[in-house]
Design a protein around this nucleic acid. Structure first.
Lengths: 269, 269
DNA sequence: TTGCTCCTCACGTCACGTGAGGTGGC
DNA sequence: TTGCTCCTCACGTCACGTGAGGTGGC
């Protein structure tokens, strides 16, 4: 019989760990002195403890370890847990590698230019339901777009409110096709889950949930072009490619309808 | 100004998270209503929150984030933290990959033969200081070794105790060189940090701390040969190679000096 | 007036580490 | 008798999630 100190030392762990395993029912002492409370362990329990430590080092939780040790023909059970663990670990490696890439991209940006000019986040878009009208402009760029915004948005607004629909956040949806000189895009408002049958040129769309590089634009929209390009550069530095789909979400607007905070989303491939 | 709910929604986090960042001093509300305690956030704080979320997703702790945000020309500081993070992530990826290999080796063992016959652990040896005599036997294997043990160990024991040294755990140290037919190895006892000048054939050695595949043998030493081979098979399955150095630590012995629990260590290359 | 939002505690998470304060064994 | 070991609480860790119980705003 071994004292807890000897037992722990032989296994290379602390006595606190041994007591903890007793507390959670993973490894109870062979006997406990009723007077002093001193724990005693049998030498054959060393092998049990080893098994626990092996499973722990594979990343199993103590609850799982207790389960595996509990049922006797535990091979099937253990196999199931290890398969689960395998995919969990593979998953977490993939995530850490992705994280490492992001850290390195940040460091690159710092080395190159002081610090990053934009804060870009890679994320999934939130589900969205919008009522939009299709718009055309003479060319890309804010100067071409602005008049289109100013004529189309009020149009959609009127169609919605006269239909009894409360308008939400203003939204613009773009698709760039190769060599487009005359951009065609959708302008409108988020409408949540309110019913709306559509009217004349206004229809309801639910853009798919996709992965985007997202950034915020503060203040007037004049910066939108340069921000767009900054995000494209960010994508390049981070090994991502622009798919051609982009969205503008006007998170906050001035009373006059001008954007105050805009989220710019460029879909990655 | 934004309510905490709007603020959180725009950033895609919960209000609890926002409050927590307030509690720890990372992002305090632009204003707090003194009557109701309601928090108010400025739209420009959305960018601040974004920065926090970006750093969080790089794996920085909230303490570190607070530090980086605290000093204003934080580029140097941030760079240092990101470099640290980079190496931490690389480290953790390596560990997870190692863990994945162990899980897969376990699964292979289960597929092949029900479950593993030995519990083998890869670990660093503990520091060790032993007094040993050199021994020779006619060949490898327990049957050849046993008589050597039985004659050499008492010899060392006498040399130590007559020198006033308390003997610790019995230890055997082996080196296999290619094609050795007449094994030469060291037998003796752990002596901790007790001084011992050496006597006749007995000398003090401190075997280096090395990485070993370790397993326990319960009961009489007759199983040592098959266990040795099982560990070699384990190494093969786990992509490790035996370096030729091995050790036996007699963790517990019977009153008659026979081993009751023995740790067998094979050094990996 | 009824939902909805917001508020402040405060416990739980996971596997122990780390004292604090006290007692048994050589 | 003096160290050394052992004992039982009980807090701390990290970044929030999740109620509980209560109140303000449209």
């Amino acid at each position: 019989m071994l004292s807890i100190g000897d037992f722990a030392r032989l296994a290379g762990v602390t006595t606190r760990t041994i007591r903890h395993y007793g507390d959670v029912g993973i490894l109870t002492p062979a006997s406990v002195d009723p007077g002093t409370g001193y724990r005693r362990y049998g030498v054959d329990q060393l092998a049990d403890l080893r098994r626990v430590l092996v499973l722990r080092d594979l990343g199993l939780g103590l609850d799982q370890i207790r389960e595996v040790l509990a049922d006797d023909p535990s091979v099937e059970h253990l196999r199931g847990m290890l398969r689960l663990r395998r995919s969990e670990i593979a998953q977490s490696i993939a995530e850490e590698q992705e994280r490492l890439r992001r850290v390195e991209a940040h460091l690159d940006a710092i080395e190159r230019g002081g610090t990053m000019d934009v804060d870009v986040v890679l994320k999934q878009t939130d589900p969205l339901r919008v009522a939009v009208a299709t718009a055309r402009s003479a060319g890309w760029g804010f100067e071409h777009m602005r008049p289109v915004f100013e004529s189309v948005m009020p149009e959609v607004w009127v169609a919605l409110t006269s239909g009894g629909v409360r308008v939400g956040m203003p939204v613009a949806l773009y698709e760039v096709d190769a060599g487009d000189d005359e951009p065609v895009f959708d302008l409108g408002f988020e409408i949540g889950d309110q019913p709306f049958a559509g009217a004349e040129s206004v229809r309801v769309v639910e853009p798919p949930v996709i992965e985007v590089a997202s950034t915020l634009i503060h203040g007037r929209m004049a910066q939108v072009d340069e921000t767009f390009e900054a995000v494209l550069r960010w994508m390049e530095a981070n090994g991502r490619e622009f798919s051609g789909t982009s969205r503008e979400l006007h998170l906050r607007t001035e009373p006059d309808g001008m954007a105050k905070v805009t989220e710019l989303q460029l879909a990655v491939r």
